[in-house]
Design a protein around this nucleic acid. Structure first.
Lengths: 212, 212
DNA sequence: GCAAATTCCTACACGTGTGTATTAATGTGA
DNA sequence: TCACATTAATACACACGTGTAGGAATTTGC
């Protein structure tokens, strides 16, 4: 006997989309789960359940969990990494170091404000050993680029002494400050916007770096 | 037939110690695993195997995984939290704000240098949802104490304007900088020590906060 | 309309980790 | 020395996640 009119009918069969057309939907579902419960909660089963489909359907789109999360991070963090690197490059104002810091932070925070869920996802940390590698790689790239930007700046502007020794410490401090700024921006319990927070943080970090 | 002289005899039965005497040994094994492979690798099974014992023996000491890791974090992070709070309190030099920052960072980093494994463990992040809560609690406590310390300082020393709005941002920046400093100290690829790094970071952060 | 290819669901086998009842060994005190 | 309490090992049942084969439904092309 087919289910009566009471309650929901037992779940209807999902439409025939095929791997190609379903793949983006899988990533959407995966992102929703990751934002809500962390990347660790993204399993083949949870993604399948979230989109009302069985696990083999997901396996038809991605070979395994790692490949799925990999694809998710590729899609989500691509423009994010672009934004970070652009924020570093675009702020190379050779005459006004303070303005360069401010411009950089404002560019970074405007990018974050434009896609808050993505940033919240990537900045929430990496609970999964199979995924940790990706984060390490991305961080290493940003670190390298930041070093590229900061080293000549400190040489040119402030003739900082003993730079090779201080640089690693300062780079870590700089990146931590960027993360902190993004956190503060995404923290909805305050009313900071990208521009005023960027100015505030940029000026503070400029002071910290100026006489280092 | 008992095992011949070749190879190791099949593992001997563990001595009768009882839960009370074995509990600290369990925590030692758990810490070793956590330091080596992260807290996520601390399972009842892995701990039992590491100490040459079967899982029920571990269950006799701790009701479940959460309670075990909880106890580990209690034992390991107790004096660590003490050290952080002491670093905050001890540096309340009311006349010289820069020296206060330097003293605070130096106290923090000296504590970290004194028990590097513990700090590396706690600062490596929190891969486990069941454990994340503990970290959040500890962080909230430190944040509250840091606010207590920084708010009057900024009022008294610098009459910072619009403090209520700026304070959350500055506190997050401050704590991020502390984490960054500890990371740099524990990073063996450089030659910074607690005192010189503390001085360097303390001065930098003082400049950042001075005219915020 | 209807056959055929595509796509989805059901069902299984496996691995790892949890938590517990039962059985066997060890110490210990009389 | 030997019975008895304590303690450890074996073995089981369960939950959850992975990954795969085979049968049923839906599209699509003719």
């Amino acid at each position: 006997m087919p289910p009566p009119t009471t309650g929901q009918a037992q779940r209807a069969r999902a439409p025939h989309l095929g791997p190609e057309r379903r793949r983006p939907l899988v990533l959407d579902a995966a992102r929703a789960i990751a934002v809500a419960d962390g990347i660790g909660a993204v399993t083949i089963g949870s993604v399948a359940a979230a989109m009302g489909v069985t696990r083999p359907v997901v396996y038809a789109c991605f070979a395994d969990r790692v490949e799925l999360v990999d694809a998710l991070l590729d899609r989500e963090s691509g423009e994010l990494l672009e934004a970070i690197l652009a924020a570093l490059h675009g702020s190379a104002n050779p005459d006004d170091p303070e303005q360069a810091f401010v411009d950089g932070f404002r560019a970074l925070l405007n990018a974050a404000a434009g896609a808050p869920e993505t940033w919240r996802l990537v900045f929430s940390g990496e609970p999964d050993p199979a995924i940790a590698e990706r984060f390490r790689d991305a961080k290493a790239l940003v670190q390298a680029r930041a070093t590229e930007w900061i080293r000549p700046a400190m040489e040119r502007w402030w003739q900082t002494s003993d730079l090779e020794r201080k640089l690693p410490v300062l780079i870590d401090l700089f990146l931590s400050s960027c993360e902190s700024a993004v956190r503060s921006l995404l923290d909805s319990s305050n009313d900071w916007g990208p521009d005023d927070l960027g100015t505030f943080m940029g000026k503070a970090l400029h002071r910290a770096f100026k006489d280092a």
